[in-house]
Design a protein around this nucleic acid. Structure first.
Lengths: 341, 341
DNA sequence: ATGAAAGCGCTAACAA
DNA sequence: TTGTTAGCGCTTTCAT
């Protein structure tokens, strides 16, 4: 009673054929009430559970989803992974994690490892899709969904928030609140989220005849963002931005620390600061950050739905979803009078 | 050229036997230089990579590690998971995530799912080990390591920080700084981390003849901790604690928000506050929290080493590791004069 | 409704 | 050193 029981052993115990056991535990096969009872009894006796790997070999379905991750520093992904895992688990799939950070091998290497496990599907989170990578996925014929990243190809699905619309909302907030010297701290320049948020922000400003006053790059990294903030404000007071849009919350916290504790500025009176994501921390009193919410539950639902449709119904058409998220007004940015109440 | 190539196809292409292919890609088998070249060429042609699942079926080694997780709210686990994943990936294993939260099924259910995947080993993170669960693990004969949780059994390995010593350090800080009314906000009462931290804290106070002045339970939850803080201070000023040890950083941030922004208290002048974990956020200027560091890199290394030893060398003896972590002095708690410089 | 038999892609004796 | 062969535990025809 130490090791795992096989279907063959259960069959012996129940005095039936091995295929009968397979049928009882398998999908909708025709089994008599009697047979079912006998088999289940024997299985319970032996603590039998089907071997998923063996099943996978035969059927070709591993029920494993590969989740490729590059950037875990941002707390946005915490919640996303937890929810993705749970959603997939509920549907009978399980998540295998593949870190694509520099120390653990680049994305291409990781993709090979993933395919070795015969995964049924792949979710790429915070990973840019190189054309080479896209080819690999096509070639392996495994459904892929990009989570929180967009791409240009029309043949691969992606789920993002509506980053461009989000950027425009921030611009509108600044403009309506009378800001005239809006600054921007960019994320990693290769990231579609970065590009789209900036594009929307600039569009919004331009539409109102306001132009971007200053720009630095924070690379979605805490320390880099601190330095960006220092550079942005290392000028005489009247040459400073009166408002800053930071490409994600994680960097916005870094910027806020610099503004408040190094430069002794008051928010929102001296500067209006806005982030993007609405991670839990943004609502904590110490930061209370105005930000654009990413509707994480919806994003996860869409991701899982698309992926499972592609796996189970071999739905071929790629979908590209943009989920609109509200601007959450808190105390780090001035609110236009017209918006109050 | 769409689907995956098999070793058989590679063999055909190379004009050799299928087992030759297996040998080339497998472990240290005897293969001639010539053979190796032929096979690798054919494999490259076809984009062949061995099927890990098939290998697992035969050899019994899936090279999958099941990671069971209950509590992802605490940012301590972010970093832990990332590092665990990378460390295992580097050694040729991959992590499959199993959420044991309430919505996704309890721990027992999850354990069955894990075993279905024929995992080579299991890491339980922030999961208490019931005796039933322990039995299941023994029965399945799969190596298990508890990460950041201890347990009473001597036959299962665990890696934790030295929580008791940590608690004592905090007590010593308070005592030396002249605190006379130390409070404690507990984590989830069932958690070994909670019990050990409190035990050490009480020991340290008692040794100095100081007794615990007040205690509330925060359950390792942000909101619950806020409420605990409110209760702790909902008394006339002279009946308030002059110092509070909170069982982890995550709750300490909640407490700090309440103290500073609801009760308008100053840290460390009105109250000394100390947390546990030293998550990145603890060093950010907005919190600057005095705390006990968990040496996460060491914890991860130990966990991986123990697990892999048990898997690969079938090392049977369980190890229980306690890793000492330093008290990190920041501005949220008064520092004894004697400790300054 | 049930059983027998053929493999999924691989590894590991065993033979040559 | 290489090829042949027998499975790992399961699903799935194909008979019965």
């Amino acid at each position: 009673m130490g090791k795992k029981a096989t279907s063959r052993e259960v069959a012996e115990r129940a005095g039936v054929s091995q295929s009968a056991v397979s049928r009882v535990f398998g999908n909708g096969a025709a089994v008599s009430r009697e047979m079912d009872a006998k088999v289940r009894w024997a299985a319970a006796e032996l603590g039998y559970r089907p071997n998923v790997l063996a099943r996978a070999m035969k059927s070709g379905d591993s029920r494993i989803i590969g989740l490729v991750v590059a950037y875990l520093e941002n707390y946005f992904y915490n919640e996303a992974f937890e929810k993705l895992s749970i959603a997939l688990q509920t549907r009978g799939y399980h998540v295998m994690m593949f870190m694509a950070s520099q120390t653990a091998g680049n994305v291409d290497t990781v993709m090979e490892e993933i395919l070795d496990y015969q995964v049924d599907g792949i979710i790429l989170a915070s990973v840019e899709l190189s054309s080479k990578l896209a080819e690999q996925c096509k070639l392996a014929d495994v459904p892929v969904v990009l989570f929180n990243r967009g791409q240009d190809r029309s043949d691969i699905s992606s789920v993002t928030s509506d980053n461009r619309a989000g950027g425009r909302k921030v611009a509108e907030l600044f403009v309506r609140a009378g800001m005239t010297r809006p600054g921007y701290i960019a994320g990693w320049e290769e990231a579609s989220t970065q590009r789209d948020r900036e594009k929307g922000f600039r569009e919004g400003l331009n539409a109102a005849g306001v132009s971007l006053f200053a720009r630095e790059v924070g690379n979605y990294d805490f320390k880099t963002a601190q330095e960006a903030a220092r550079r942005l404000f290392a000028v005489p007071p009247h040459e400073r931005p009166d408002s800053v849009f930071v490409a994600n919350d994680h960097m916005a916290f870094a910027v806020m620390d610099v503004l408040r504790y190094e430069l002794d500025l008051r928010l929102p009176n001296d500067v209006s600061l806005v982030g993007y994501d609405d991670v839990p921390l943004a609502s904590w009193a110490a930061y209370d950050l105005t930000t654009v919410r990413q509707r994480i539950v919806t994003m996860v639902d869409e991701t899982v739905t698309i992926l499972i449709d592609q796996i189970e119904q071999s739905e071929r058409s790629a979908r590209r979803i943009h989920i609109d998220g509200p601007l959450i007004l808190r105390s780090s940015a001035k609110v236009p009078d017209a918006w109050k109440n």
